[in-house]
């Protein structure tokens, strides 16, 4: 554990000091902020001013939208298969604590019965340098699901955006290694920075307005399986993929072969349980025939199936699904109402 600081204008030096790593930071690309590799002239958004969070979560860094699993050549009697090269050491700068927590949740799936080498390799190679939230958005509720605006638990190091300096606190070995690489740029931080950071974290926490009491919800949701309660939300669901694609913990994917002449690749790409094709069987039967079942699945997966299997709620309270849902399906509203919904005895048919 080390405490460092660097002046705001030194950000460029910090980034160039990380030359041996591939550096990823929130950058303005095409009008939206996304995590991208930092080129020399780029200015990370978190440095320039305040940004709440990226629209597309940084899960794309470990689990890209589209990822080649292997390539092959057809023709003749031979089929050559080759694996893509892995990434080298990477540093992610400016990730929010909630999104880092999401990695810890998704780890359980990708390291479960069949470890996923692609995901795990990236995780191992990546050092996460967080940026504590100074201004949580109005739909953030991370403290309700075990996080916080300055939660350190899942980060290797955390930065605080103080007025004209950044306070950098290393948390893990990876983080300390990073501080060692940057020893030319970093200065020891004093009590003033530590106090300011603490104050900032406290203030940020106090500004979070929304919350949910998750007690009992994992057990309650399955009892509402056939309940008409879901219809008040699914009736207005459009069946688009916003909530799942923008969710930092959603991790479903589809695998497809793409062939160009004699070259092919097997790739996986994000998939979402909100599409009807997701659960469609080859026979034409669909076990989740309407949006009611799909909405139920999404919410129940996060707040019931996942906690019952892995002991942790698959939601980090980042607020993205609430902010971007075109029809205001608000997960907190759904959970609140699920508490009120009365479970009736199923009548025998």
């Amino acid at each position: 554990m080390g405490d460092f600081k660097f002046a705001r204008e030194k950000m460029a030096d910090v980034l160039s000091g990380l030359g041996e790593y591939q550096v990823l930071a929130p950058l303005m690309t095409g009008g939206v902020v996304r995590f991208r590799e930092v080129e020399e002239s780029d200015v990370p958004v978190g440095e320039r001013g305040r940004y709440d969070n990226t629209v597309v979560p940084p899960k794309e860094l470990m689990f890209p939208e589209t990822e080649t699993l292997f390539r092959y050549q057809l023709g003749g009697t031979d089929i050559n298969v080759s694996e893509p090269e892995g990434d080298t050491g990477r540093v992610v700068i400016g990730i929010r604590p909630c999104d880092a927590q999401a990695f810890a949740i998704v780890d359980r799936v990708f390291g479960w019965d069949y470890p996923d080498p692609y995901y795990q390799k990236r995780r191992e190679n990546t050092t996460l340098v967080g940026l504590a939230c100074d201004e949580p958005c109005s739909n953030c509720f991370c403290p309700s699901v075990g996080g916080g605006p300055a939660s350190e638990e899942y980060l290797d190091a955390i930065m605080y955006n103080l007025d004209d300096t950044f306070y950098l606190k290393t948390i893990t070995k990876k983080g300390e290694e990073l501080a060692r690489v940057l020893s030319g740029v970093l200065q020891e931080a004093g009590d003033a920075e530590k106090k300011a950071a603490e104050k900032q974290a406290e203030e940020a926490t106090s500004r979070i307005v929304r919350s949910i009491d998750t007690d009992g919800i994992p057990e309650k949701l399955p009892s509402l399986y056939g309940h008409p309660f879901w219809e008040q939300f699914s009736d207005r669901c459009l069946g688009c993929g916003i909530c799942t694609y923008l969710c930092p913990t959603c991790h479903c994917f589809d695998i497809q072969d793409e062939v160009e002449h004699f070259d092919g690749r097997r790739a996986r790409m994000w998939d979402t349980c909100m599409f009807k094709e997701y659960s469609l069987h080859a026979s034409g039967h669909n076990p989740r025939p309407t949006r009611k079942e799909r909405t139920r699945n999404r919410i129940s997966h996060k707040y019931s199936y996942f906690p019952l299997n892995f002991d942790v709620i698959a939601c980090v309270g980042c607020g993205r699904c609430i902010n971007y849902c075109p029809v205001n399906i608000d997960i907190l509203d759904v959970l609140e109402k699920s508490r009120e919904a009365e479970v009736k005895e199923e009548k025998p048919a």
């Binding site: 690309t29 996304r34 688009c240 993929g241 916003i242 799942t244 694609y245």
Partner: peptide, 16 residues
Amino acid sequence: DEQFSKCVRCYSCRSV
């Protein structure tokens, strides 16, 4: 090019 590159294909434009 810049605009289409951003698309995550959530198909919300189609669904709505």
